[in-house]
Amino acid sequence: MELHFGRAFAALAPSLLDGVGIVLYITIVGFLSSLVVGLVLAIGRLSHNRILNVILIGFIEIIRGTPLLVQFFYIYYVVPMLIAGFASMLFGVNINVQIAASTSGIIGFAINYGCYLSEVIRGAIVAVDPGQREAGLALGFNEAQVLFRFIIPPALRNSIPVFGNYLVMMIKDTSLLAMISVQELLLRTRTFASQTFLTVEAYTILALVYLVLSIPLSQAAKYLEHRLQRPR
């Protein structure tokens, strides 16, 4: 077997560089959104409202119990049809709804990772010393102020290493978006391989690109974990 890594890299690299841009864009926006979703869900779960809790637990279980890829398909193909269907049913208008593939990806990540992160954040909130709440209350802050000023900041800080791990997972999970036609790394590589038959080279280069993206991040997460444990 003859391998042509040089030729493959020269031809594939520019395309993959564009793909890296798309991957980073979706990951950054998706991850920030998932943090917001996670925080909102975590706070909702901490409320003493039974009905709200049941609804949120049900939602989180549905999301965690179905594959991310299925959720991407659902958002990309099914949700637009549902919106169009409801629009014609309720308002009698026919509209053509489309959600861009990359937007579907961001929404999917926000919801899916948001559900996982909500459990991380909720655990971290519960783990904050109850003395912090009492100190805040005793000074004269109300419950909401105490939550946002004295409970959530240390909880989020303590969760940073876990967030780092989820961020690395999200980068790798962007490869699923090839299935809904996002021009990310896998789709570009597959197209290239099928045109040039440089299959071994193309997919090996692809794997290396993912490693180059994820290894520094997971190292950074490890470093942060180490640093956060050390007294400052």
């Binding site: 003395g131 009492e134 100190a135 005793a138 004269g140 004295f150 240390p154």
Partner: peptide, 30 residues
């Protein structure tokens, strides 16, 4: 209740200082 608590200071057995704030910030924050 919170505005009443502002008039009543409390010192705890386990201090309960805010760990992410400096000593001065702990004192000046409220």
């Amino acid at each position: 209740t919170p505005s009443y608590r502002q008039k009543v200071g409390m010192v705890f057995q386990r201090f309960n200082l805010f760990p992410l704030k400096t000593v001065l910030e702990n004192v000046t924050y409220a």
